[in-house]
Design a protein around this nucleic acid. Structure first.
Length: 479
RNA sequence: GGCCCGUUCGUCUAUCGGUUAGGACACCUGGUUUUCAACCAGGUAAGAGGGGUUCGACUCCCCUACGGGCUGCCA
């Protein structure tokens, strides 16, 4: 191994783009993981490339099928579709071992018979001698095979010990790592199973991954992984290590910040398109572009536009972004998503009558809603049925005087043409007759039709629920 | 401890040595209005600190502070 290994040739930029998302199935899909997947998806889809999914389940202790299922659900909800089958890293362990042995044969890796106790002792000794950092140096690195004992061994990389390595990263720039900080990492455990460092490289290579876009917690690992590419004479992929997402307080995002799982956002009722928009603007920008569809993002998404600083989650902006997407989505699609939300949130499903009405009245609520719970709240008047029970505030606007006014209104609506143009003069007429402001008339109508004080326009409500229901609710309230 | 990465309005960001440092969210004021929103107009608000380099630095270099990551037979 040369003291200073030059960067191996990067994957040809003209080759079709292949990206991947490779989560380990130890829990739900983290919001940061969701964004990583999104970047990979945008990058590949925007270039006619492929976006692959691989589950890094080599840690048998911590990997669970439930976690894999949760990750797939999260990605599916976010609308991030992947190409081909989901690859299980564990299933490829024989291939990983094969590569480890090939490196053994090439002399770029070696068998190490040191026990874990011996390694611990090595570190303890180095520490006792005042060394602040102890890279384990195996005595077996250049040992004569004739001396090999008949005991378990691991396979380690023969890492360069002097000079420096560098990785050329699309986000981080050129990062230089001194080789004496790189240890002879283990690639095959004593039980014959591969470590992550080996498996990830072998899989990325075999799957034809051209661009590795992942969290910058892997930045240092990239230098180690590059050793494997070099040892096998494989083309190194283009690296792009993106910063992690932090909580509102700037600390690493954790449970105490609230929602960290993608599915939690689904349950809270954020639309997936809004999530994608918001998440893509977290750490990435394209000029002043703020509100955009994923199709639009694909056209301009570029690794160069990713910042190096970690971004904080801001729920206000998330809501605002989602509000734009609610308004942008067509009525039928929105209803469909709402149905999925109700199921995910384990709330009662809509009856077909409610769905029909909602579709008819979607136009007057979607512009003002930011989330699905918000939408439901604003669509309250469409979802309830008589008797309408007014809430406390609404009840106040149904006093004797107001009920009297409603009584005079009802007969006039009996034969009115049911359009806003026809209804408006009727209400205005009553306003003129009573000498009250329009607001004084609108309030009891709102209370009667929706049982609430905050509702869409009274005309929209009347139009949406129709003449018969309007009259019934008005009569009921004025009785 | 060592190494690596980062630091522009409260937040997300634009800026690729020369700008009145721009936009978005949030916030405040005003307008509109039929309530809540939405919408329209305007406003407050930023280059972590200290040294350099330069005619000129947010932009390049160094130091400090703070934050993050890696340092496993975890991924």
């Amino acid at each position: 191994m040369p003291a200073s290994s030059a960067t191996p040739p990067s994957a040809a930029s003209s080759a079709p783009v292949v990206t991947r998302f490779a989560p380990s199935p130890t829990g739900y899909l983290h919001i940061g993981g969701g964004r990583t997947a999104l970047f990979n998806w945008l990058f590949a889809r925007g270039r006619g490339g492929k976006f692959l999914l691989r589950i890094e389940d080599t840690d048998r202790e911590r990997s669970t099928p439930e976690a894999t299922a949760a990750i797939l659900r999260g990605l599916t909800w976010l609308g991030l579709d992947w190409d081909g089958d989901v690859v299980s890293q564990f299933d490829r362990k024989d291939r990983h071992a094969e590569v480890a042995h090939q490196m053994l044969a090439r002399g770029t890796a070696y068998k190490c018979f040191s026990t874990q106790d011996e390694i611990a002792a090595f570190r303890a000794k180095a520490e006792a001698e005042g060394a602040s950092y102890a890279v384990f140096q195996s005595p077996w690195r250049d040992a004569d095979p004739a001396r090999f004992p008949d005991s378990p061994y691991v396979i380690r990389m023969k890492a360069p010990r002097t000079g420096e390595s560098h990785i050329d990263d699309q986000v981080q720039g050129r990062v230089v790592i001194k080789n004496d900080t790189l240890d002879d990492m283990i690639v095959l455990r004593s039980d014959g199973t591969p470590t992550y460092m080996l498996a990830v490289v072998v899989d990325d290579h075999d799957m034809g991954v051209t661009h590795v876009i992942r969290g910058d917690d892997h930045l240092n690992n990239a230098a180690r992984q590059q050793m494997v590419y070099t040892a096998m004479d494989w083309a190194v992929p283009v690296w792009a290590h993106i910063p992690l997402i932090h909580g509102p307080d700037g600390k690493k995002l954790s449970k105490r910040h609230g929602a960290t799982g993608v599915e939690e956002y689904q349950v809270m009722g954020y639309p997936a398109a809004g999530m994608r928009n918001y998440l893509s603007r977290l750490g990435w920008a394209h000029g002043d572009m703020e509100i955009f569809t994923s199709q639009e993002a694909m056209k301009v998404f570029d690794l160069k536009g990713i910042g190096k600083a970690p971004a904080r989650l801001d729920f206000k902006k998330l809501e605002n972004t989602c509000g734009h997407h609610m308004a942008m989505t067509d009525d039928a699609a929105l209803l469909h998503e709402l149905t999925a939300y109700l199921a995910a949130a384990e709330k009662p499903a809509l009856t077909s009558a409610q769905s029909d009405l909602l579709l008819r009245g979607m136009y007057c609520v979607k512009d003002r809603a930011k989330t699905f719970p918000d939408l439901i709240d604003k669509a309250h008047f469409m979802l309830i049925s008589r008797p309408i029970v007014p809430d406390e505030a609404a009840a106040k606007s149904l006093d004797a005087v107001s009920r009297g006014i409603l009584k005079t209104l009802t007969p006039r609506l009996q034969n009115a043409s049911w359009t806003k143009d026809a209804l408006e003069p009727i209400l205005n007429q009553i306003v003129a007759e009573t000498g009250l402001g329009f607001g004084k008339l609108a309030a009891p109508i709102r209370a009667a039709l929706a049982g609430k004080t905050a509702t869409p326009s009274v005309f929209d409500m009347m139009l949406v629920i129709g003449r018969n229901e309007t009259l019934a609710r008005l009569e009921e309230a004025s009785a």
